[in-house]
Nucleic acid binder design. Structure first.
Lengths: 231, 231
DNA sequence: AACAAAACTAAAACGTGTTTTAGTTAGATC
DNA sequence: GATCTAACTAAAACACGTTTTAGTTTTGTT
């Protein structure tokens, strides 16, 4: 690697580090490319030259965390279906530590229309889920007629959706956790082998008891505000 | 209603009609507030005075369709769990007739951070699903320990997610249908009474057989394009 | 008819993400 | 060491959603 590439990578690093810092400290709306360039002491054209878009910068920033995430997950002892619930818990713990950071990230990922970018995120996470499902099948907890790929995609899809809802402030963090677990629990209970199904369903019902009414998804929803009949 | 309100409503109608037309005819990216105002022969400040935001305009436009949707749905004979699948089919048929229109709409809904707006959409749809679940419980197809509200929210959440994925062009329409049915089928199978569960699971497995690999979610995903190692 | 209030217009302005242009710097190559 | 070239800069520009300002109709009220 010549000095050219080294400088290039250093500048990349500088931008990513600065972006990460800004995402953590400032409000979501304050993170503009102009301020990023300014704080990083770099022309506002440079991030575009090096990354291509704002979302790509954020993607690069959030890539750093996936390693931590995997570490945290594999550190937990995985028994039965609880692995899936742990996945949700660990994610929520991360989110709690750095809400504005992850909010910015999640929103950026979903705002992008770039296939490469979003799959850059979804694919490794999908791979993880797929492995977990496969292992559950091997343990005889999930019926072996199930395609791990399809089930994992469905579970990931649900979870991802609730993450987005949290990022958009439609649900708070505890509800996001509960609703995700409820969804994952249902999906798994549908295909669980008879031996493990009963216990899982009980867990799901326990979660259900904690769920708020959908109409009151966000309690600060003000019903009579500018309702302006439209049709 | 005085002439003031009448004029106001007429102008509203004019803007909504024009917006609807533009969303159908033009490309998604071509639908800007400036062109809307221009085509409607109206100042670009007017839509903001009357609706508040671009998303609110689009919301008003799409409100028209919900009635059609309900009509199409209730026209079908509803037997067993097929109601839920019909829901997906009918939606897909609408989408197929006017892709760019619904794409614009779906994207606008999800881009908004306005609680009032998004719940203006989600709530009636949620109510519909909730009714369907309640009826299924009454028919003895779904275990009565299940809270219709929670289950309906979960089913709607999944479906909504796949609609968004279609709007973002992450899945094509047939896959969106299949993945939605797969998700709904799983969620329902988890809580189905023993009598109806077996048949439903068979349907789900049949759908599973049609699902593409997740890695190949979109066949035109070009793997080697600007992959630029990030970490 | 006179006045007040609301509705609307035209145009400019702001802050975005992003691209473009033209010029400069620094590494690689001969 | 001279030269080529990729990387970078600074600054302007574009299109967008949105807001603001100031002026003009249109409507309802006295």
């Amino acid at each position: 690697m010549g000095k050219r590439e080294i400088n290039r990578d250093e500048k990349r690093q500088l931008i990513v580090t600065t972006a990460r810092h800004l995402m953590q400290v400032r409000d979501v709306s304050d993170f503009s490319m102009r301020t990023l360039a300014e704080v990083a002491g770099v022309s506002s054209a440079t991030p575009y030259a090096l990354f291509g878009s704002k979302q790509a910068v954020i993607a690069a920033v959030m890539d750093i965390d996936f390693a931590d995430f995997m570490a945290a997950l594999t550190a937990e002892p995985n028994q039965g279906f609880d692995v899936f619930f742990s996945l949700v818990d660990i994610t929520a713990e991360l989110f709690e530590k750095n809400p504005s950071y992850y909010r910015t990230g999640a929103q950026a990922i979903q705002a992008t229309s770039d296939q490469t970018l979003s799959s850059h995120f979804s694919l490794p996470r999908h791979g993880l889920l797929k492995d977990l499902v496969s292992e559950a099948i091997e343990r005889g907890e999930i019926c072996d007629q199930i395609n791990p790929d399809s089930l994992a995609l469905n579970l990931g899809h649900q979870f991802y959706g609730w993450i987005q809802a949290w990022a958009k402030d439609t649900v708070n963090l505890p509800d996001m956790v509960a609703r995700s677990k409820y969804g994952l629990g249902l999906g798994l209970a549908a295909v669980a082998t008879p031996a493990s199904r009963a216990q899982l369903l009980e867990q799901v019902l326990a979660i259900q008891a904690t769920l708020p009414e959908a109409g009151a998804l966000k309690s600060r929803l003000t019903p009579n505000r500018k309702q302006e009949a439209v049709s």
